[in-house]
Deep mutational scan, measured.
Amino acid sequence: MSIQHFRVALIPFFAAFCLPVFAHPETLVKVKDAEDQLGARVGYIELDLNSGKILESFRPEERFPMMSTFKVLLCGAVLSRVDAGQEQLGRRIHYSQNDLVEYSPVTEKHLTDGMTVRELCSAAITMSDNTAANLLLTTIGGPKELTAFLHNMGDHVTRLDRWEPELNEAIPNDERDTTMPAAMATTLRKLLTGELLTLASRQQLIDWMEADKVAGPLLRSALPAGWFIADKSGAGERGSRGIIAALGPDGKPSRIVVIYTTGSQATMDERNRQIAEIGASLIKHW
């Protein structure tokens, strides 16, 4: 067993022997301040990774656009098919120029040779490549099948209805392509620590998230040296922004954090800054 596999296998073990965790309302004060600064709703939840206990939450059962955070769930569904012998990570998928959609920095470079399922998941999570996500959605049967996968996990809230990039439209009061912070946090925890996926697939999923290259201005910008984070960000229309993450000190994750916002007129930089400040408060009061 590799060191990384050992780390993920012992996530519940280490967490069980940690000192009790206590909620700190100071972080919620910052979440509410972010709402004021952005002029928009902000949803927040913080779960203990081992027990699933909610440590703090704000608007945990209000719907927010998922945006690209759905790509972690998508690759979880792909990995479940791999575990069941219905898919192979090494299978190569070929596609054409007509398949390319807006923001496809990886797939646009491989029109000639195609990409493997493993490479597509890596591109979808680490670079948020939209064509990679659409190609992977095709392998599982489309958005409705991802929703069905989530329902089978016990998540009857999260739903995907459309493809990239239309799913980022974020129309107010439109339930399409949305989740709730509580539902997303619980589902992410199941994917990373539950028995739904094999140990190898859980490790692969967290490795992809740990290698995320496009979430630097968010929670990662607030992390002290030595902290662990595996995350996936999302951005959408109407001032929408979000991030889902597993993080913790001492090089291992111990909490799940989900943050979503929508309806702001603020710039992307300002949305990023507010999420980073929430992260800084979380870490300060850990």
Score class of each variant (00 low, 15 high):
residue 252 K to M: 13
residue 10 L to S: 10
residue 215 A to N: 05
residue 19 L to W: 15
residue 162 R to G: 08
residue 113 D to L: 08
residue 100 L to W: 05
residue 20 P to M: 04
residue 235 A to F: 02
residue 52 G to I: 03
residue 119 E to I: 01
residue 250 D to N: 15
residue 131 T to Y: 05
residue 91 R to M: 06
residue 58 F to A: 09
residue 275 I to S: 01
residue 11 I to S: 07
residue 102 E to D: 15
residue 172 P to I: 12
residue 228 F to M: 10
residue 53 K to C: 08
residue 74 L to M: 09
residue 162 R to V: 02
residue 21 V to D: 05
residue 225 A to S: 13
residue 75 C to W: 00
residue 159 R to A: 06
residue 111 L to P: 07
residue 240 S to C: 08
residue 82 V to N: 06
residue 229 I to L: 07
residue 189 R to G: 12
residue 53 K to M: 13
residue 9 A to Q: 08
residue 55 L to N: 08
residue 139 T to C: 09
residue 155 D to P: 01
residue 80 S to P: 01
residue 251 G to L: 09
residue 104 S to C: 07
residue 269 D to R: 11
residue 210 E to S: 10
residue 166 E to G: 12
residue 76 G to H: 02
residue 272 N to P: 01
residue 207 D to M: 11
residue 285 H to C: 11
residue 177 D to I: 01
residue 61 E to N: 13
residue 84 A to P: 03
residue 183 A to G: 07
residue 80 S to K: 14
residue 207 D to S: 15
residue 50 N to Y: 13
residue 159 R to C: 06
residue 226 G to W: 06
residue 245 A to Y: 01
residue 103 Y to R: 04
residue 250 D to Y: 12
residue 92 R to Y: 10
residue 246 A to I: 13
residue 40 A to Y: 03
residue 15 A to N: 06
residue 133 A to Q: 00
residue 237 E to V: 10
residue 5 H to D: 09
residue 88 Q to E: 13
residue 19 L to P: 10
residue 171 I to P: 08
residue 82 V to S: 09
residue 45 I to E: 04
residue 176 R to P: 04
residue 265 Q to W: 10
residue 233 S to I: 00
residue 276 A to Y: 10
residue 94 H to V: 14
residue 87 E to K: 03
residue 150 L to E: 02
residue 266 A to V: 12
residue 100 L to Q: 05
residue 222 A to F: 08
residue 266 A to M: 13
residue 197 L to F: 06
residue 115 M to W: 02
residue 51 S to Q: 10
residue 73 L to I: 14
residue 134 N to K: 04
residue 205 L to K: 00
residue 244 I to K: 00
residue 1 M to K: 01
residue 76 G to T: 07
residue 158 T to N: 01
residue 57 S to A: 15
residue 150 L to F: 09
residue 106 V to C: 09
residue 247 L to K: 00
residue 54 I to V: 15
residue 185 A to E: 00
residue 242 G to A: 10
residue 94 H to F: 14
residue 51 S to R: 07
residue 192 L to S: 05
residue 184 M to F: 09
residue 81 R to Q: 10
residue 94 H to E: 11
residue 110 H to S: 08
residue 265 Q to L: 14
residue 184 M to I: 14
residue 163 W to N: 11
residue 160 L to T: 10
residue 53 K to L: 13
residue 98 N to I: 14
residue 63 R to C: 07
residue 269 D to V: 13
residue 33 D to L: 13
residue 57 S to N: 09
residue 240 S to W: 01
residue 85 G to R: 10
residue 107 T to A: 10
residue 78 V to M: 09
residue 233 S to T: 14
residue 41 R to C: 06
residue 29 V to N: 15
residue 70 F to K: 02
residue 14 F to K: 02
residue 200 A to E: 14
residue 56 E to A: 12
residue 89 L to I: 07
residue 284 K to E: 15
residue 282 L to C: 11
residue 120 L to R: 00
residue 99 D to K: 08
residue 251 G to P: 08
residue 107 T to K: 01
residue 85 G to W: 06
residue 282 L to D: 01
residue 89 L to K: 04
residue 55 L to S: 06
residue 252 K to S: 13
residue 270 E to Q: 12
residue 65 P to E: 02
residue 205 L to F: 05
residue 215 A to Y: 04
residue 147 T to N: 11
residue 234 G to A: 09
residue 139 T to V: 12
residue 170 A to V: 14
residue 247 L to P: 00
residue 54 I to F: 12
residue 49 L to D: 02
residue 222 A to L: 07
residue 58 F to D: 02
residue 189 R to P: 02
residue 68 S to P: 00
residue 79 L to E: 02
residue 53 K to P: 03
residue 115 M to N: 03
residue 277 E to I: 12
residue 189 R to S: 13
residue 30 K to N: 07
residue 128 S to G: 03
residue 268 M to K: 06
residue 215 A to P: 05
residue 272 N to S: 05
residue 244 I to F: 03
residue 272 N to A: 05
residue 149 F to R: 07
residue 128 S to Q: 00
residue 22 F to Q: 12
residue 200 A to T: 12
residue 52 G to V: 04
residue 233 S to F: 01
residue 127 M to Y: 11
residue 186 T to W: 15
residue 281 S to G: 08
residue 129 D to F: 00
residue 44 Y to N: 00
residue 236 G to L: 01
residue 254 S to P: 07
residue 236 G to V: 02
residue 175 E to G: 10
residue 193 T to Y: 15
residue 37 Q to D: 15
residue 134 N to R: 04
residue 140 I to W: 03
residue 202 R to K: 15
residue 61 E to A: 12
residue 173 N to M: 15
residue 161 D to M: 05
residue 92 R to A: 09
residue 47 L to S: 06
residue 197 L to K: 06
residue 111 L to S: 08
residue 46 E to C: 07
residue 194 G to A: 11
residue 144 K to L: 13
residue 55 L to K: 08
residue 233 S to L: 02
residue 165 P to H: 06
residue 184 M to W: 01
residue 165 P to M: 07
residue 67 M to Q: 08
residue 79 L to K: 00
residue 168 N to P: 02
residue 114 G to C: 04
residue 72 V to K: 00
residue 205 L to I: 10
residue 144 K to T: 13
residue 230 A to I: 07
residue 197 L to D: 03
residue 22 F to M: 10
residue 107 T to C: 09
residue 126 T to W: 04
residue 55 L to E: 08
residue 53 K to S: 13
residue 136 L to H: 01
residue 160 L to G: 04
residue 18 C to W: 12
residue 158 T to Q: 01
residue 5 H to K: 14
residue 32 K to D: 05
residue 202 R to C: 09
residue 282 L to Q: 06
residue 70 F to A: 10
residue 181 P to S: 05
residue 69 T to V: 03
residue 265 Q to D: 12
residue 264 S to W: 04
residue 131 T to W: 02
residue 2 S to L: 14
residue 245 A to F: 03
residue 65 P to C: 04
residue 123 A to I: 04
residue 219 L to C: 04
residue 211 A to T: 10
residue 283 I to Q: 07
residue 235 A to G: 11
residue 177 D to C: 03
residue 157 V to Q: 14
residue 238 R to A: 09
residue 118 R to K: 11
residue 85 G to P: 01
residue 134 N to I: 04
residue 197 L to Y: 05
residue 13 F to A: 14
residue 181 P to L: 03
residue 204 Q to E: 14
residue 22 F to T: 06
residue 275 I to N: 01
residue 276 A to G: 10
residue 202 R to D: 03
residue 214 V to G: 06
residue 220 R to M: 03
residue 227 W to S: 02
residue 53 K to V: 13
residue 6 F to V: 11
residue 41 R to A: 10
residue 167 L to W: 01
residue 172 P to A: 14
residue 141 G to H: 07
residue 137 L to R: 01
residue 263 G to S: 08
residue 197 L to V: 06
residue 234 G to Y: 02
residue 244 I to A: 07
residue 108 E to H: 11
residue 68 S to Q: 00
residue 25 P to S: 11
residue 286 W to M: 07
residue 135 L to F: 06
residue 116 T to C: 07
residue 228 F to R: 07
residue 284 K to A: 13
residue 275 I to P: 00
residue 106 V to N: 07
residue 212 D to K: 04
residue 177 D to T: 01
residue 56 E to I: 05
residue 127 M to C: 09
residue 86 Q to V: 14
residue 187 T to R: 01
residue 207 D to I: 10
residue 154 G to S: 08
residue 269 D to L: 12
residue 266 A to T: 12
residue 260 Y to R: 00
residue 9 A to V: 09
residue 193 T to F: 11
residue 144 K to G: 14
residue 272 N to H: 04
residue 22 F to N: 10
residue 281 S to H: 13
residue 221 S to N: 12
residue 270 E to K: 13
residue 249 P to L: 06
residue 121 C to M: 08
residue 131 T to H: 04
residue 219 L to D: 04
residue 117 V to M: 10
residue 74 L to R: 00
residue 60 P to Q: 13
residue 192 L to N: 02
residue 119 E to S: 08
residue 148 A to H: 13
residue 127 M to I: 09
residue 157 V to P: 02
residue 209 M to T: 02
residue 136 L to C: 04
residue 150 L to I: 13
residue 33 D to H: 15
residue 90 G to Q: 11
residue 24 H to D: 13
residue 240 S to P: 02
residue 217 P to N: 11
residue 37 Q to V: 15
residue 11 I to A: 10
residue 183 A to N: 09
residue 229 I to C: 10
residue 284 K to V: 10
residue 259 I to R: 00
residue 169 E to Y: 11
residue 256 I to W: 01
residue 59 R to F: 03
residue 281 S to T: 14
residue 183 A to L: 07
residue 266 A to I: 06
residue 105 P to V: 07
residue 33 D to A: 15
residue 137 L to T: 07
residue 217 P to D: 12
residue 177 D to K: 01
residue 84 A to G: 14
residue 38 L to C: 07
residue 175 E to K: 12
residue 226 G to L: 05
residue 280 A to N: 13
residue 8 V to D: 11
residue 125 I to Y: 00
residue 40 A to T: 08
residue 99 D to L: 09
residue 103 Y to E: 03
residue 262 T to Y: 15
residue 106 V to G: 06
residue 4 Q to C: 11
residue 203 Q to G: 13
residue 247 L to H: 01
residue 70 F to W: 08
